[in-house]
Write a protein that binds this DNA or RNA. Structure first.
Lengths: 222, 222
DNA sequence: ACTGCCTTGATTGTATGCAATTATATGCTT
DNA sequence: AAGCATATAATTGCATACAATCAAGGCAGT
């Protein structure tokens, strides 16, 4: 009985999916035994998967206590978005300069696909989510800096952040789709600064939907 | 006999130190058995440590083959520096706005300490390295976004990058020290854009010392 | 009733054993 | 002698066993 895939990856994927879907709630105590049983393996691969997830920030490991799903505050989310703005706008500018024809074609396709779905009467949000992820992934790929992808992944793989668009109303979805299209145009034009600017608006919209008005003045009320 | 520290952390620190010091060369095959023996533990905690190191990018895990110390090309280093420029300049600007008095004081102290050492006849490079790391760490802390610290850590913990200053000549060291001082002044003045600009120069100098003249035109020779 | 200690149960951390896989060496064929 | 197949050794991946540690509840003393 050959094991097609490795138990560690199985565990890793399963736990991450649980976190992403929300079935493993922030703060939840992940006991190795239960996880092991649920994926039909022993604790050893589960523990290795948890180490990886901890390094990626999705869980927190406390010595002799175990693993807990990471929690994040509004402040955390603001900070994540600040970094996303920084990194993704860089990625956009970089993509404008470095993307090849295949990348450009795919980005155009995805942006138009999203735009079409969003204009439908009752948009298939699940599909928009998928295409949206794919769009951003393709963009990172197009900029030719894989390390940037890893950095961004560690910022965007929180469930709250992945499902931002669910908070958009119809207007928000339409705006998002238009931004995608404009971004593709900027990239096709090799206009790095245009791409950067569009991406900044794009992420700031998302931030706004999640945490409300800008963070320009929080705290410091001495 | 109580174990003061956990074997996993022992293994993690030991392997990372080996990589940082260069005693574990890029490309080297890290066999779990040998590592376990060298730290006086079993393979289980070593494997967990390797998972973490893999997630952080310091080693590469190949299924059924084991762990290899990551190698990086000139291209990798260029890309790492692009991201460092982006993130550290953001950190500098952010620190200018958010640092508290304790941070500012410590940064001033570190910058002056470095400046003093560097001006000596035969500077203690080991100590400069330490203070330099501390300076950058304090800066990140001052900007109040811990996630940024983790992101940067994953970029700067390669041995080649940590020991950049070894490649500096006397001029380079002096320049670097002056940049630190200017940066502190900018932060004390709460001048975010000044701080950002100084940091950009600072990192670009380092990049220059490592990979030579800028990457403005590589590839694309169709 | 309340506090502090101890016992018990659950869980983590580590070591070890064994099957599966890969790398290396050996011998056979041409 | 070169190339391929096979055998052997080394190593990984996983499961399990056991010790160490932590959380919870009960019991004595005040």
């Amino acid at each position: 009985m050959s094991m097609r895939t490795h138990a560690v990856d199985e565990a890793y994927g399963s736990i991450r999916a649980g976190i992403a879907s929300g079935s493993l709630e922030p703060g939840a105590h992940l006991t190795a035994d239960r996880l092991a049983e649920s994926i039909g393996a022993s604790r050893t691969p589960v523990r290795e998967a948890l180490r990886r997830l901890a390094a990626e920030g999705l869980v927190q490991l406390i010595p002799n206590r175990g693993a807990f799903v990471s929690e994040y505050s509004a402040q955390d989310i603001r900070q994540i978005y600040e970094l996303r703005i920084l990194l993704e706008s860089f990625a956009a500018a970089s993509a404008a300069e470095n993307a090849d024809d295949a990348n450009r074609k795919r980005l155009r396709f995805l942006a138009e696909e999203i735009s079409n779905i969003v204009q439908a009467e009752s948009p298939d949000l699940e599909r928009v989510a998928l295409l949206n992820s794919e769009f951003h992934r393709t963009l990172i790929e197009a900029c030719g800096n894989p390390r940037l992808g890893k950095l961004l992944a560690s910022l965007t793989e929180y469930p709250l952040i992945q499902s931002t668009f669910r908070r958009y109303g119809r207007d928000g979805l339409l705006r998002s789709a238009r931004q995608h299209l404009e971004l593709v145009t900027a990239i096709e034009d090799r206009d790095a600064e245009w791409a950067r600017a569009v991406m900044i608006s794009h992420i700031r919209s998302a931030k706004h939907a999640l945490v409300g008005p800008g963070p320009e003045e929080q705290g410091d009320a001495a």
